[in-house]
Structure formats: C-alpha cells, structure tokens
Amino acid sequence: MSNNKGSLPPRSNGQPRTNRQQPRTAAATQAARPKAKSNKKKPKKRGPFARMMRLLLILLLVAVIAALGYAGYLYWKFDQGGFGVDQPVQAGQAASEKPLTMLLLGTDNRPKHPSNLTDVIMVAALNPKTKSATVVSLPRDTYVELSGYKKTKINAFYSRFKGKEKTSGILAEDEMKTMMGKYLGIEVNYATVLDFQGFRDIVDEFGGVDVNISQNMCYTDSVDGTNINLKQGPAQLDGDKALDYVRYRKSNCSPQTKPSDDFDRNKRQSEVLNSLISQMQSLGGVLKIGRVLDAVDDNLESDIENAQIKSMIATYWDISKADVEFVPVGGTWRSPYVYINDKELEAAKKSLQDRIAGVSASEASAASDSP
C-alpha cells in the first residue's frame, strides 16, 4: 500500500500555500517609492574674498587681544618701578589731562670717556587736546648769558650742577629745569638724561633708523674708540652708526670729509628722532617698547612718575608726525661759542608756548603761511 496521499506536492514547513501577495514592510514600501526631489539648497561654498575677510577679522581680533595683553604687560613693568619715579601723579596733572614740558639731555658719557657734558639739549612741549608737540633743539656750544648764572656754554651747565649736588642739596636735573625754563620763558615739568650707550640701545632695539646722509663723514679717535665712516645717500643705521651720524663734527681722515657745525648736528638729531617716531608707531615697534625700557634702564635718568609714563604712552603713542614740530635754533659760530639768532630763539619760545596754550603745530603753520 502506498503512503502517498494523492499527487499534491508536500507543504512547505507546514505553512499553507496561498496565491495572495504578502503585505510589504514599511521599509520595503519606502524603498520602492520613487525618491522625491529635495527642496533644501546645498550650502554655498565661501568665495576666496569671503574667506580672506574672515581670516583678516580673526587676525584683527588676535592682534587686539595681543595688544591689550601687551599693554597690561607694560603697565605691570612700570608698576615694578625702575624706569621712573615710584610716586603718584597729582590730581589733574596726568599727561592725558594737561600739557607737559620735558627737558631732554644727551650726555657724551661712555665707559672709556666718563663725562656729564650734554651733546644734545632739547625741550619738548606736548598737548593732549591737540595731539601735537614741539621739540626745540639748541646747539651744544650755545653761549648763555642769563641772570644768576655764569656766562658759559649751554652744554657745561649740567656737569657744573652735578659737581655741586652734595654742597647745594639740589639735584642737577632740577637745576637744569629751572635754568632752561628761565632761558625759554616756560615752566619745565620733567627732565630725562640719556647717555651714549642708552641712545645706541634704543636704536638697536627698534631695528635701526632710516636716514638720508647728506655728505660723506669720516673721523677716528683711538682714545675713545670713535671710528666714523659714513657714505652719502639713504641708509639704515644701527645704534653705533646712528650715534656717529648725530655726533660727527670734523674730519681727520685722508682725504678729509667736509666738517659739520652744531646746526647740522641739530638737524640730524631731529631726523633721527623723527625716524624713531615712525619705528615706535609701527606694530613691531609697539611690541618692542618693553625691551627698549629694559635696554636703557642703566643708561637713563628721569624724574617722570611711573604712572605719568603710562599716561604719556596711552596719550601720545599714535601722534601724527605732521603734528610734531621740530625747531632747531640757529645762530653764528665764533669760536668757541655759538651766538644764537634772537629771532629764531623767539620763534622757538613762541612755538613752545603755542603747544602749551593748545594751538596745534598745523594751525600755527597755516597761520604763519597766510598773508
């Protein structure tokens, strides 16, 4: 007997066979549907200009943060003392609030040639409201005839006052402020004395100065190590060469170069100072101020309060060169003195008084040019 139950095929896994289509799953249904077009727009790629602007904004932000941090660093350095006088500034006397005047003296003091004779004599007046300044320079051999003082060269006074400090009880810097104030008809608030090495260090820390040398200059002195050898034309000078440039007076070389008088020296001093202003106002210069202060610490004397120095930097660091008037006073050389031209001296006094009174350098220049 056969065990087969008819001719039907066997059931599969015991499930009933059916011809009905099985329902699709949600995933299968979704996959089977035609894809709808998306309405979302693809993000546009930034163009090169947009990317550049974004980069510039980031760099600007970093620069601002760095500048603020550096300003804080400078303030900390001043608070540690060593650059000025560790005393408070009297109320209403800050550089940001009132005009200030300052005597700037450059001595020829060197390790091999100690001296307190002043090769550089300048008086500056600064006004915070007009953001302008005047710098008057006087020849080192200026003959001074002033009531209460010995008739002598102007560059000898500081050395004489230094020699009398112990007996007089008065600092030489204070005596110089009084004397120069009387000579120029103004009150001098502060005095700063810088020696040759300090000058070299400042120029070197700022990366040199750009000048236009008007003539060949050659002079040697084996006693103090002087070796001046400068060629006419545009040049960038380091500290040593810049000092040679402002000091040069005569030649002992073969062939000799043209001599230079005090008036030429004053013009070159103003040229170097002008170049240093440009260096200080650059971003690199601003970031070097701390190193400059460290470099000149042992070669600079000043009676400016630390807080006042901070106020001066904040007030005048961006002063325009067009608003800094350099006034070298001329005269007549009759050995061993320079006899100052009275009209030029009066013009210098007026320029200082104008800055103190709030007349800007550009306004004064426009007034003098008008008919």
Rank of each mutant, 00 (worst) to 15 (best):
N3L: 15
N4Y: 15
P10Y: 08
S12E: 09
T18W: 14
R20G: 12
Q21I: 10
Q22S: 11
Q22D: 05
T25N: 06
A26E: 10
A27K: 15
P34T: 09
A36W: 01
K37A: 12
S38V: 07
S38L: 11
P43C: 08
M52N: 07
L56R: 06
L57Y: 12
I58W: 14
L61T: 14
V62H: 01
V64F: 10
A67F: 13
Y75D: 11
W76L: 12
K77S: 13
Q80S: 13
Q87W: 02
Q90R: 15
Q93F: 05
A95L: 07
K98N: 11
P99I: 01
P99W: 03
G106E: 02
D108L: 04
D108K: 02
P111L: 04
P114G: 03
N116R: 10
L117D: 00
T118C: 09
A125D: 01
N127M: 06
P128V: 06
T130Q: 09
K131E: 10
V135G: 03
S137D: 01
L138T: 05
D141R: 14
D141T: 02
V144S: 04
E145I: 13
S147C: 00
I154Q: 05
F157L: 05
G169M: 04
E173N: 05
E173Q: 14
K177M: 12
T178P: 00
Y183Q: 11
G185V: 05
E187K: 15
E187V: 04
D204M: 12
V209H: 05
Q215T: 06
N216F: 02
M217A: 11
T220A: 11
T226S: 12
L230E: 01
L230A: 06
G233P: 04
G233L: 10
A242R: 02
Y245T: 04
R247Y: 03
S251F: 05
C253Y: 06
S254Q: 13
S254I: 06
P255M: 10
S260Y: 03
R268N: 06
E271C: 04
V272N: 02
S278E: 13
S282Q: 07
G284N: 13
G290H: 06
R291I: 00
A295D: 02
D297I: 08
N299D: 11
E301K: 15
D303Y: 04
I304Q: 08
E305V: 01
A307S: 13
Q308C: 00
K310L: 15
M312E: 04
A314K: 10
A314Q: 07
K321T: 12
A322Y: 06
I340H: 03
N341R: 07
A348Y: 01
Q353A: 06
Q353H: 07
D354I: 07
I356Q: 10
E363N: 09
S365W: 11
S370Y: 07
